[in-house]
Nucleic acid binder design. Structure first.
Lengths: 338, 338
DNA sequence: ATTAGCAGTCGCAAGCATAGAGTGCTAACA
DNA sequence: TGTTAGCACTCTATGCTTGCGACTGCTAAT
């Protein structure tokens, strides 16, 4: 990142701030009035020209004011982040609730709350399930040759699924199978489980069930099975950039394609804040801000918002960095409203 | 519905058909060329004027052709339906799969398939869960003072949820509770279960669990808990009417609000095809076509599509009325593709 | 280094003329 | 009475011109 003079920095921030709220090109005189009454607009103009040359600002046309480029937003965000990280970043964390609610409920609540307080479309990606530890696998006979498999991890119930078992299976058979499976997998992390896991010798009769469970656990591994929750899709219509159908379409095509979202945040799973801005980072005319999220101490994925490139980064980052606290207050409040 | 002359009927259908594919106002001469070369455009004009007076057609402006009104679409659909119902309406039905897949999976698959073959946004509403019969309720101790409740109905696993149980609960306690609960509810339909159900005398120790289960079953009753699945949201961008952001916004506001969708189809649960067209029926500039759907013989809700007012009703109705068959072929095909 | 002043550029809205599409009406016709 | 040809009329869409307003970039003076 370039080294800017103090004044250029202030200027750049002024442009971004102004633009974020007005969504119209910012002129030199506007900045002078609101931010720097002590220098003339001409001075500001020449500084702005410098920032433009460096790629931070763009002119829609020659007689218009300046608009921040994606690069400007990135710079802007950088400075917000550096000040936040000194202050306070909580690990975004939901403890306790996991026990009673299950992962899915927490996720849905969280997404809703984030969308409501930021007023942007929010999303949550479950991943990093890899690192959860299998506490127990339960097999429940449902009759009709089917059984329900429940995987319990240290972060709560991870997944349940129906599997087909052979005809005439008894509860006793399932109990034994469960024992064997728990002996094999209990205490292991999901990422360690693979198709090369095989039955211990002497209990070949449980092969079918065993294999089904292995397949299920494998399917939990990141990618193939990871869920994405989106909330507040219609919030984007509040923002003028989405008066343009192309932008809306673009937006929809991102949030409705799981793989696209994964592509965007893949590889950032260890980063506190992952921030993607603009076409160069895969989100044309948009920004995607996500933060790491944990339930009962286990990193399970990322929460964040997606919206216009000129989104209110300060607010979003603040909300995300305090989510653990905020969510408690917010859900309490909502319970009363409803 | 008005009684139209045979020629007016043909004419009206011609206009709707043309408009459905061109999405541009239809002129008298265009109709003459394509549908009625045996009469002059002047004759057609005077007939069209009649249809306009009856409210079936609208002119965007005086020197434009005609565009069908919502009323015209309703008439059009009526005639399609009457011909279909004579032919073949299968009960939309998924049997067998329920056993192994669970309700949710089937629903998700169905919605996807409908969206893919119609090329419209499709949705499915689970309701009428009321009529399912409780086969069994299972309680599974997960440790940490929590238990998993699984409700098994004649249509498969309906719902599972974690509940909080008192400390120090044993498996035996849960087994006994399950017995009592099954004695109370087994074989009954969900709609019959209410808060006035109380524990039999002499087993007050199970009150907490019992009450939790009642609450859960109550929550399954229509409305409070009914799920809506939507697929293919971005399909609408293929249609020119959604070049207009207001329409998109409108569309989004419908499909992202559960209550709105319910409002629209509430009361139609027994109707084979529920078709809502235009503002007068709650969907401005849109049409919503849904059909009854059953899993293993139990009516569980409705599947359908939502799209522009001038959607391809023939195709949609055909797809929906044959869904049972189609879905089999389609999913087979997809499995190969993927 | 900063500034005032000014020329230059561009977008945007309004005004106007024109071409094209389609209708409604009327009078004649079968 | 239903149908038709012909014509006047209306309205949209497009392109062109013009003037205004909003900025900027440059230059010369401080």
């Amino acid at each position: 990142m370039d080294q800017l003079s103090a004044r250029k920095k202030r200027l750049l921030e002024a442009v971004v701030d102004s633009y974020i709220c007005s969504v119209e090109p910012i002129s030199s005189s506007a900045i002078q009035k609101e931010y720097m009454p002590d220098v003339s607009s001409a001075t500001i103009r020449s500084e702005l020209a410098g920032l433009e040359e460096l790629g931070y600002l763009v002119k829609p046309h020659v007689s218009a004011g300046r608009v921040p480029s994606s690069k400007a937003y990135r710079y802007y965000v950088e400075s917000i982040l550096s000040s936040v990280s000194e202050e306070d970043i909580d690990e975004l964390e939901q403890a306790g609730r996991a026990k009673i609610e299950g992962v899915e409920t927490i996720v849905k609540d969280t997404v809703k709350v984030v969308s409501d307080i930021t007023n942007y479309t929010s999303l949550m990606v479950l991943e990093g399930v890899d690192n959860l530890i299998v506490k127990e696998v339960k097999l429940i006979n449902l009759g009709n040759d089917t059984a329900l498999v429940i995987v319990i991890t240290d972060a709560g119930v991870l997944r349940d699924k129906l599997i087909d078992i052979g005809a005439g299976v008894t509860d006793g058979y399932l109990d034994s199978a469960a024992c064997i499976i728990n002996d094999a997998f209990g205490g292991r992390s999901i990422k360690d489980i693979s198709y090369s896991d095989t039955l211990p010798a002497g209990v070949e009769e449980f092969k079918q069930v065993f294999d089904e469970v292995v397949a299920l656990l494998r399917a939990c591994k990141s990618g193939s099975d990871s869920q994405i929750y989106v909330e507040g899709t219609d919030k984007i219509f509040d923002y003028p950039e989405y008066k343009d159908v192309d932008n809306v379409r673009n937006f929809m095509s991102v949030i409705s394609r799981k793989d696209k979202i994964h592509e965007l945040i893949d590889g950032d799973s260890d980063i506190e804040f992952s921030i993607k801005i603009g076409a160069e980072e895969g989100v044309k005319n948009m920004a995607l801000v996500t933060a790491r999220y944990a339930i009962s101490g286990n990193k399970v994925g990322r929460v964040g918002v997606i919206g216009p490139e000129r989104m209110d980064y300060k607010k979003v980052i603040k909300v995300l960095s305090r989510l653990g606290r905020t969510i408690g207050e917010l859900t309490d409040k909502e319970d009363k409203d409803v």
